[in-house]
Amino acid sequence: KLETFPLDVLVNTAAEDLPRGVDPSRKENHLSDEDFKAVFGMTRSAFANLPLWKQQNLKKEKGLF
């Protein structure tokens, strides 16, 4: 399991300012399950079932792209 970080560490943070080991294209993977659901309004599995373009739009909207 990946290390999780608080939302404010990941949202609207440039790649070079992210904690070590965080993939800038997969910031959402480093949210706790609770934060993930609070941000996206759905579970990880529901998010994973969305088309890629919709996932990317949601990530942009939430500052996690």
Results as ranks from 00 to 15, higher is better:
51 P>Y: 01
58 L>C: 06
45 S>D: 14
27 K>F: 04
14 A>E: 09
28 E>N: 01
59 K>Y: 03
53 W>A: 12
63 G>M: 05
14 A>S: 12
34 E>H: 11
11 V>N: 04
22 V>I: 08
31 L>G: 00
4 T>H: 10
60 K>G: 07
11 V>F: 07
50 L>N: 00
44 R>W: 05
13 T>Y: 08
40 F>M: 06
31 L>D: 01
10 L>A: 01
36 F>G: 00
61 E>L: 11
1 K>D: 11
14 A>Q: 10
58 L>M: 12
36 F>C: 00
20 R>H: 15
16 E>W: 05
3 E>T: 11
11 V>G: 03
63 G>H: 06
21 G>I: 05
53 W>T: 10
53 W>H: 12
28 E>I: 03
41 G>I: 03
26 R>P: 01
64 L>P: 02
24 P>N: 05
28 E>P: 03
53 W>C: 13
5 F>H: 07
55 Q>C: 00
18 L>A: 04
56 Q>A: 11
11 V>M: 13
45 S>M: 14
13 T>V: 14
45 S>T: 12
44 R>P: 05
2 L>G: 11
3 E>N: 10
21 G>Y: 08
14 A>Y: 09
52 L>R: 12
20 R>G: 15
31 L>R: 01
60 K>I: 14
61 E>G: 07
17 D>V: 02
53 W>L: 12
49 N>A: 13
59 K>V: 05
32 S>R: 08
13 T>L: 09
37 K>Q: 14
41 G>T: 06
37 K>S: 14
30 H>V: 02
10 L>Q: 01
47 F>I: 00
17 D>G: 07
7 L>D: 02
21 G>A: 08
1 K>N: 13
36 F>K: 00
45 S>V: 14
39 V>A: 09
57 N>H: 13
17 D>S: 08
13 T>F: 07
22 V>Y: 03
54 K>D: 12
8 D>S: 15
62 K>R: 10
4 T>P: 06
57 N>R: 14
14 A>V: 10
37 K>W: 15
32 S>M: 04
14 A>C: 12
58 L>S: 03
48 A>E: 10
51 P>T: 06
25 S>Q: 14
5 F>S: 02
17 D>K: 05
36 F>N: 00
63 G>F: 06
31 L>V: 03
56 Q>V: 14
14 A>R: 13
2 L>D: 09
59 K>G: 01
62 K>D: 01
25 S>W: 10
47 F>D: 00
15 A>C: 13
48 A>K: 13
13 T>P: 07
28 E>M: 01
59 K>M: 03
28 E>F: 03
3 E>R: 05
56 Q>M: 12
41 G>R: 10
61 E>Q: 12
35 D>M: 04
30 H>F: 09
10 L>S: 02
65 F>R: 04
17 D>Q: 07
3 E>M: 11
27 K>G: 03
23 D>E: 06
17 D>F: 07
53 W>E: 14
35 D>N: 05
48 A>W: 10
57 N>T: 14
25 S>V: 09
29 N>D: 15
36 F>T: 00
34 E>N: 11
13 T>H: 08
7 L>M: 08
64 L>N: 02
36 F>E: 00
51 P>R: 02
56 Q>L: 12
54 K>A: 12
56 Q>T: 13
15 A>K: 09
26 R>Y: 10
51 P>G: 04
61 E>P: 02
64 L>H: 04
24 P>L: 06
19 P>Q: 01
18 L>T: 06
21 G>V: 07
36 F>W: 03
61 E>D: 14
27 K>I: 15
16 E>C: 12
16 E>H: 09
16 E>G: 09
35 D>H: 05
30 H>S: 07
50 L>W: 04
1 K>W: 11
21 G>L: 05
61 E>R: 08
58 L>I: 09
46 A>S: 11
4 T>D: 04
55 Q>T: 01
38 A>N: 13
18 L>Y: 07
42 M>D: 00
36 F>D: 00
23 D>R: 02
21 G>C: 09
13 T>N: 07
43 T>I: 09
1 K>Y: 13
47 F>K: 00
19 P>E: 04
49 N>E: 14
3 E>W: 08
62 K>N: 15
12 N>F: 07
10 L>V: 02
23 D>S: 04
9 V>M: 14
26 R>V: 05
54 K>P: 00
18 L>R: 01
43 T>V: 10
46 A>G: 08
50 L>M: 12
12 N>S: 09
7 L>S: 03
8 D>R: 08
65 F>M: 12
16 E>A: 12
63 G>C: 06
52 L>A: 11
33 D>L: 07
19 P>L: 04
45 S>Y: 14
22 V>S: 03
64 L>T: 01
40 F>W: 01
41 G>H: 13
5 F>D: 01
6 P>S: 09
13 T>M: 10
23 D>A: 02
32 S>C: 06
3 E>Q: 13
46 A>R: 11
57 N>M: 14
42 M>Q: 04
1 K>Q: 13
53 W>G: 09
43 T>W: 05
22 V>L: 03
44 R>L: 06
27 K>W: 05
12 N>C: 12
24 P>H: 06
22 V>T: 04
12 N>H: 09
63 G>L: 06
42 M>P: 00
46 A>K: 12
21 G>M: 04
34 E>P: 10
65 F>N: 12
34 E>M: 11
18 L>G: 05
17 D>E: 14
19 P>V: 01
42 M>H: 03
24 P>Q: 07
57 N>C: 15
26 R>E: 06
57 N>D: 14
4 T>N: 07
23 D>T: 03
5 F>R: 02
8 D>L: 08
40 F>N: 00
42 M>N: 00
48 A>H: 14
49 N>S: 13
55 Q>E: 00
26 R>L: 08
58 L>T: 04
45 S>L: 13
12 N>Y: 08
16 E>Y: 04
32 S>Y: 04
53 W>M: 09
44 R>F: 06
36 F>A: 00
41 G>Q: 15
64 L>D: 02
63 G>W: 02
37 K>G: 14
39 V>D: 00
48 A>V: 10
32 S>E: 05
18 L>S: 04
33 D>W: 05
11 V>H: 04
60 K>N: 08
58 L>F: 07
3 E>C: 13
48 A>T: 11
27 K>D: 02
65 F>T: 12
63 G>E: 03
24 P>W: 05
58 L>P: 00
19 P>T: 01
59 K>C: 04
63 G>P: 01
49 N>K: 14
55 Q>F: 00
55 Q>D: 00
14 A>M: 07
54 K>H: 14
3 E>S: 09
25 S>G: 10
65 F>Y: 14
15 A>N: 15
28 E>Y: 02
28 E>T: 03
30 H>P: 02
58 L>N: 01
13 T>E: 05
49 N>Y: 09
24 P>A: 08
64 L>C: 03
2 L>C: 14
12 N>D: 09
55 Q>S: 03
8 D>P: 05
20 R>Y: 15
45 S>E: 14
49 N>I: 11
10 L>E: 01
41 G>W: 05
60 K>C: 11
